[in-house]
């Protein structure tokens, strides 16, 4: 049936933060995904949950999923160690329309574990970096220790046309960077906001205020791409859980242009 998972093996567990881990998974069959698409990951016999892979889609033999420990199933994933087996099915949804970003300036705004799907996008953009005018990455975490991908984030600056800004809600004694929510690092952006593309992923409240800020800055609603978080379960627009207006987030999303959803009531709930 459509909803039957197949096996993947955990080959590595990377501790990102006290509450976030990245799992490197080796699929037992050919598996590929487009950046921004999601999978349903099964903890055997206990349940499944939707995640967008955080790895480079160009890497075919393994993929990575970054998971925050927030609920019943995610807490089970956090107990995994390498060698154990999980179930997976997918990929589902539309993914980021990377081809339509060509020759454009791209602003990427991430909050917390929301950087996970964006990292996959960042790797995708890097793999054809010459096609994009500029990439500005803005990332906010709660505290310095909540920053994900610390071990590689600085290396993203290896390309000349990539800019990186970090912020934390609360600093510590070693933090020299910006303190404040992610919208506080969106001033004086080094790009022409009327033509640029904005890609936002994070908790609903962060997505809401970031979107409002981007609109203020001159971004066009059709150039703002949002990853909507809903309770995607079947992944195929059948089980009904993730309805958003006339859309199902699992099938019509999870990536939506703000222009396509801004008339739907209560999208940030």
């Amino acid at each position: 049936m459509l909803y039957t998972p197949w096996e993947v093996k955990v080959t590595k567990v990377i501790e990102e933060t006290p509450t976030i881990k990245t799992f490197v998974l080796k699929p037992e069959r050919n598996f590929s995904f487009k950046t921004g698409q999601f999978v349903e990951l099964t903890y055997p016999g206990k349940g499944e949950a939707p995640f967008t892979p955080s790895s480079d889609p160009n890497v075919k033999d393994e993929f990575e999923i970054t998971i925050m420990n927030v609920g019943r199933v995610t807490s089970l994933f956090h107990k995994l160690s390498s060698g154990e087996k999980l179930g997976v099915r997918g990929p589902y949804g539309n993914g980021y329309p990377v081809d339509s970003f060509v020759n454009k300036e791209i602003l990427i705004v991430g909050g917390g574990v929301g950087l996970a799907p964006l990292r996959s996008l960042i790797f995708t953009l890097f793999s054809r970096i010459e096609q994009f005018k500029k990439i500005v990455i803005c990332y906010g975490a709660r505290t310095p220790q909540d920053i994900v991908y610390k071990y590689q984030i600085e290396s993203w600056l290896k390309f000349k046309n990539v800019h990186l800004r970090l912020t934390v809600d609360r600093g510590d004694e070693n933090w020299r960077g910006n303190v404040g929510v992610v919208t506080t690092i969106l001033n004086d952006l080094p790009l022409l906001t009327k033509q640029a593309v904005g890609v936002v992923c994070g908790p609903p409240i962060m997505m809401k205020f970031t979107t409002l800020r981007l609109l203020e800055l001159g971004f066009l609603p059709e150039n703002i791409y949002l990853s909507m978080e809903k309770n995607m379960s079947c992944g195929l627009g059948k089980c009904g859980h993730c309805r958003l207006g006339k859309y199902y987030v699992c099938k019509d999303g999870p990536v939506f242009r703000f222009a396509d959803i801004n008339e739907i009531e209560d999208i940030w709930d």
């Binding site: 016999g45 499944e48 179930g87 859980h241």
Partner: peptide, 16 residues
């Protein structure tokens, strides 16, 4: 038409 997918384990068999 809405439905819930559930997982269970019985006699070491993984049921969905």
């Amino acid at each position: 038409h809405c439905f819930l997918i559930f997982d269970d384990e019985k006699d070491k068999n993984l049921l969905r």
